[in-house]
């Protein structure tokens, strides 16, 4: 395999690792479940996408096709489960924080959402 392709592969994997970490940081930092969904979506789309895309260059053809299959499956199911989660949270009585109230909550480090139903 060419060195350029090898470099591209590593760049993709490292970028994917970066986005995965940032997504995880977002899950910890953001104030309520609705905003955390966006951070989780980041891990699901770009984190998984870039890492699996980078791994594609490391194996033979069949391996690459299988990796792409996993990726396609992840990208089909992630929005569905995110949407189900949002609907369930709304149904369960949670209301998203809006506007600058969310920022104040972050600054004061107060628990932003209700306790377990």
């Amino acid at each position: 395999m060419g060195t350029a392709l090898q470099l591209l592969s590593w760049a993709l994997i490292l970028a994917g690792a970066f986005f995965t970490l940032v997504g995880a940081l977002g899950i910890l930092r953001l104030p309520d479940v609705f905003t955390r969904m966006h951070a989780a979506g980041m891990t699901d789309t770009m984190g998984a996408g870039l890492i699996l895309g980078g791994l594609c260059f490391q194996g033979d053809g069949i391996t690459a096709v299988r990796l792409l299959l996993i990726l396609v499956f992840l990208w089909f199911t992630c929005p569905v489960s995110t949407h189900a989660l949002a609907r369930a949270a709304l149904q369960g009585g949670l209301r998203p924080l809006t506007g600058t109230a969310a920022q104040r909550d972050v600054a004061a480090q107060t628990p932003a959402s209700r306790q377990d139903p």
Binding site: G23, V33, R36, A40, L85, A89, Q115, D116
Partner: peptide, 13 residues
């Protein structure tokens, strides 16, 4: 947590 939905979100992730 603090809600059950946060936990489900974290586990799905």
């Amino acid at each position: 947590g603090p809600t059950a939905y946060d936990r489900v979100l974290a586990l799905n992730n």
